[in-house]
Design a protein around this nucleic acid. Structure first.
Lengths: 222, 222
DNA sequence: GTCTATAAAAGGATAGAC
DNA sequence: GTCTATCCTTTTATAGAC
C-alpha cells in the first residue's frame, strides 16, 4: 500500500490533535508545552508549527474537531423517542463518568475551552456556535419527545433545552468536586421538573419502561 | 498613628490576594506571572514569596478568602423571605453581570478555581467544602421560604438546593459565551419549575410583589 | 519585612538539513 | 513534511542588601 503524502499529513495532524486533547484536558492548556504535545504524538515541534502555527492554533483546531464529535455523543440518548429516567440518568453520567479513558476528562477539556473562550473571542465565537448547535438539537429532540409522549413541554423547546443543558452542566460541575453530594437521582428529578413531569417513584424505576410510540409512557400513573 | 509590623504585613497580604484575584480571573492562573501579581499589588516578588511561598500558595490563600466572601453575596437574596421572580432573576444576574468591576470576573475566577480543584486535591478539597457550604445555606433558605410561603418543596431542601445551584451555574456558563441565547426569564422559569411553582405571568411581574410574612406571596393567583 | 539583582530553568518559536 | 539544533524571551525561585 502506497501512502500518499496527504495521508501521512492527515495522520500527523490527527495524532497531534489527539495528544493535545488528552494533555490539555489533564493538565490544562498553559501547563502543557508545545514540545510535550508533539512528543506525546510521536512527532516534534517542527511538525506542530507546520500544521497549526503554534499552540494557540492547535487549540483552535482541537475545538473544531471537538465540535461535532461530542455533541453527537452527548445527545445520542435524546435523539430517540421516550424520555425515561434511565435515559436522563445516562445523559448526566456521560458528563460525570470517571473511567480511565477520555470520558474522564470530557468535562475538564470542556471547561478549559470555555475559560479560553470567555476571554478570547476567537475561541469564544466558535464555542458559542457549538453550544447553540447542541441546544438546537436538544430542543428538537425534546419537542419530538413531547409530541410522541403526549406530555406538553412547559415552555418553548428552546428555553427548555437551555435549562436542561444548564442543569446538566451545573450539576456536573458540582459533581466533579464532590461526587456523593450530587446524586444522579437528584439531577434526574430536576430534569423531570423542567420537562413538566411529575415525580417518579421514590426509589425504583417502574415508570422507566419503554412505551409504544404514540402512547403515553407511564400509563395512568404519571 | 503608629502602624505596627503586623498591620503592614496584613496589608501587603491583602493587597497581594486582591491583585491575584483580579489578574487570575482576567487572564487565568498560568497566564499571569508572580511578578505581575506583585507589581499590581505595589509590591515585589520578594514579598510574595515571603508570604505565600509561590504562586500556588497564593492561589490557595485566595481560595480561603474567596470562600466566605462570595457565598454571602450570592445568597443574600435568598436569606430573606419570599422567593420572587425578581429575586430569582437577581440571583442569576449576580453570576452574569458584566460591569467593569469585580463582578464581571466572578464566574471566570470561579471556573478557574474549579479547574484547578478538579485536578489538584489540595485545591479541590477546600473548594468542595465551599460548595457544600453554599448548598447548605441555600437549602436552609429554601426550606424557610417554603415554610413561610406555604409552598411545599418538591423534594428535600438539599436536593432542591443542588439543582437550583446547578441550574444557575450551568446557565451562567452558557450565558457568558452567548448572552442573548440565555434569557434571564428562561432561567427564572426553570428555577420556578425546580421549586414547584406554577408558571409566572407571561410578560409582566405582577406576582412579584412582596407579601407580608406568613402570607402566601401571590394571593390567589399562584 | 520588603526590595534588588540574579541564577537557573523552561517555554515559544524559527532556520536549515534531510 | 518532518526533524534537529538553537535563539530569545519569560518565569520561577533565591540570596543578600537595607
Amino acid at each position: 500500500m502506497a501512502r500518499t503524502q496527504d495521508q501521512r499529513r492527515a495522520e500527523t495532524r490527527a495524532r497531534l490533535i489527539d495528544a493535545a486533547a488528552d494533555l490539555f484536558a489533564r493538565k490544562g492548556f498553559h501547563a502543557v508545552s508545545a514540545e510535550a504535545v508533539a512528543e506525546a504524538a510521536g512527532r516534534t515541534t517542527g511538525a506542530l508549527y507546520n500544521h497549526f502555527g503554534g499552540k494557540e492554533g492547535l487549540l483552535l483546531a482541537l475545538l473544531e474537531v471537538w465540535k461535532d464529535q461530542t455533541a453527537a455523543e452527548l445527545l445520542a440518548g435524546f435523539e430517540d423517542v421516550i424520555v425515561l429516567d434511565e435515559r436522563l440518568a445516562a445523559l448526566f453520567e456521560v458528563l460525570t463518568r470517571d473511567d480511565g479513558d477520555r470520558g474522564a476528562s470530557w468535562l475538564l477539556l470542556e471547561m478549559e475551552l470555555w475559560l479560553h473562550g470567555a476571554r478570547d473571542p476567537e475561541i469564544g465565537e466558535p464555542l458559542a456556535r457549538r453550544y447553540a448547535g447542541i441546544r438546537a438539537r436538544l430542543a428538537e429532540g425534546l419537542a419530538d419527545w413531547a409530541d410522541t409522549a403526549g406530555v406538553p413541554l412547559r415552555r418553548s423547546p428552546e428555553r427548555t433545552a437551555t435549562a436542561v443543558l444548564g442543569l446538566l452542566i451545573g450539576c456536573a460541575v458540582q459533581h466533579r468536586l464532590d461526587p456523593p453530594a450530587v446524586e444522579t437521582r437528584a439531577v434526574v428529578e430536576g430534569l423531570r421538573d423542567l420537562l413538566g413531569l411529575p415525580d417518579g417513584p421514590p426509589h425504583d424505576h417502574h415508570l422507566s419502561r419503554l412505551a409504544p410510540k404514540g402512547e403515553h409512557p407511564c400509563g395512568s400513573t404519571c
